[in-house]
């Protein structure tokens, strides 16, 4: 089992600019990957399971993946928030999932799940960054 001191040593080792960028990209692309990289196995596994599950629940509830439409700021913000999910979001867009069904009673709930899931992953990325900088 990884101790906190081991994790701290590993965190200091990753506090180089190039590695930090790579860590943040990995943490964004695969929820929890940043924590797993830094030796925080329990946290990483929880994020790895919970965040994609939240995103998939949103898609299952007929949530819509918003387009980056700058003429409509709220839609663009929703798209930015959903993009926070990383690879699951990219894959969903590639396979055409998340078309959404406005007439569905769960449409708003689905959007809420996908948007909040993405935003939570942004927080997880920031947490991984803080750990790598030795602030936590």
């Amino acid at each position: 089992m990884t101790t906190k001191s081991t994790a701290a040593v590993r965190a200091r080792a990753t506090a180089e600019p190039g590695t930090l960028v790579l860590l943040c990209v990995a943490a964004w692309a695969i929820p929890g990957a940043g924590h797993l990289w830094l030796g925080r196995r329990q946290k990483g596994l929880v994020f790895l399971l919970a965040l994609p599950a939240m995103f998939l629940t949103g898609l299952f509830l007929n949530g819509q993946l918003s387009p980056f439409e700058l003429s409509d700021p709220l839609v663009a913000l929703a798209a930015f928030a959903q993009a926070g999910m990383g690879l699951p979001w990219l894959l969903a867009r590639m396979v055409g999932a998340g078309a959404g069904m406005v007439t569905s009673v769960t449409w708003e709930y689905g959007n809420c799940f996908t948007i909040v899931g993405g935003l939570l992953n942004f927080l997880v990325v920031l947490d991984a960054f803080d750990i790598a900088m030795g602030r936590k």
Binding site: K4, Q42, V46, F47, A53, V116, L120, V124, D127
Partner: peptide, 20 residues
């Protein structure tokens, strides 16, 4: 309830280190 579960799970794991 499902939404509350996911949000509280992620925040609890983010904010605290000890499982209890």
């Amino acid at each position: 309830c499902l939404f509350a579960f996911f949000v509280s799970l992620v925040f609890a794991v983010l904010l605290r280190d000890d499982p209890r």
